[in-house]
């Protein structure tokens, strides 16, 4: 939902970032306002996933130039957990398995970390159980998954649902969904998309990182960006995704090469 008067949530200017000395992001500019859904598309190696990890603060990625302002704060000055508590959420392409830690405990610890950061009291176990079971319905996740170890033995679809459940609990201001559609069958895709749509409000924003147009049939973006060579080379509306689907990326990347 585009509203020109909405406040800016994220502002990325001239961002350069490297991993192990190789520069991946090269002068990325990107802006997100409240209420908007953005899709970032592009070929493998274009820097999409790197961008999502830089936003979340992954220690392997070094920002060499530029700035990221999140709700008026210098995001790069924050530790990863501080970014999360400030309202950034990254849904992982490959969510990690944490054997021995129950999903329920993990979610409660994370939820309470957010509350503590906001100066609120920690929620007790029983109130949390009610809350998490209610939120599980958003992604149609069976509550038995709460008592299993985090993501351990979950199928690809279950892992992604679990990511959206975390999002539903933590209620971030900016959600970045990194290839959330990969490895999902059509039913799981519908469930996950339904969850994302349900959580999308006028006060928050979503960035979808994806290879394929398929997800965008279910979560309709306000903007579609094409990333290549570490920055955005074209921005359009949702129809750009359809055009990419039919024409591929060559016509754009060829232009980029000329530039």
């Amino acid at each position: 939902m585009i509203n020109d008067n909405a406040k800016t949530i994220l502002s990325v200017r001239n961002l350069h970032a490297s991993v192990e000395g190789t520069e991946i992001l090269r002068g990325l500019n990107f802006e997100v306002k409240a209420g908007e859904i953005h899709a970032i598309m592009g070929l493998n190696g274009s820097g999409k996933s790197t961008f999502s990890k830089v936003l979340a603060g992954h220690p392997d990625y070094e920002v060499t130039a530029g700035e990221i302002i999140f709700q008026g704060q210098d995001l790069l000055a924050l530790e990863p957990h501080e970014r999360a508590n400030a309202g950034i959420f990254l849904a992982f392409q490959y969510p990690l398995e944490i054997p021995g830690v129950s999903n329920r405990d993990f979610l409660r610890v994370a939820y309470n970390a957010h509350r503590k950061a906001r100066g609120e009291e920690e929620i007790d176990v029983f109130d949390f159980d009610d809350l998490v079971e209610e939120r599980s319905e958003i992604v149609k996740m069976d509550v038995s998954f709460l008592d299993r170890s985090v993501n351990e033995g979950f199928s690809g679809g279950e892992k992604k649902r679990n990511e959206i459940l975390q999002m539903a609990l933590l209620q971030p201001t900016l959600s970045i969904l990194d290839e959330t559609d990969s490895g999902l069958d059509i039913d799981a895709l519908k469930t996950v998309s339904g969850g994302v749509n349900q959580l999308s409000t006028a006060d928050n924003a979503t960035v979808l990182i994806t290879h394929y147009q398929r997800l965008l049939n279910y979560v309709v973006p306000d903007y579609v960006h094409v990333m290549c060579g570490g920055h955005i080379i074209k921005t359009g509306g949702k129809e750009l995704a359809l055009e990419l689907e039919s024409r591929g990326y060559d016509w754009l990347t060829a232009q980029e090469a000329v530039v």
Binding site: A56, G57, H58, P59, D60, E79, P80, H81, R83, A84, N85, F89, L90, F92, P95, L96, I98, P99, G100, V101, F106, V109, A110, A113, H114, A117, S149, Q166, L170
Partner: peptide, 28 residues
């Protein structure tokens, strides 16, 4: 480190993340 980062990205500090991972390893 990736497991620690995953927990950090959910608002859990690095120290607490390490404790949680240790605990998980042992609790099995």
């Amino acid at each position: 480190p990736d497991e620690v980062f995953y927990l950090q990205s959910r608002g859990i500090s690095a120290e607490q993340a390490q404790r949680l991972l240790l605990y998980g390893f042992a609790m099995e």
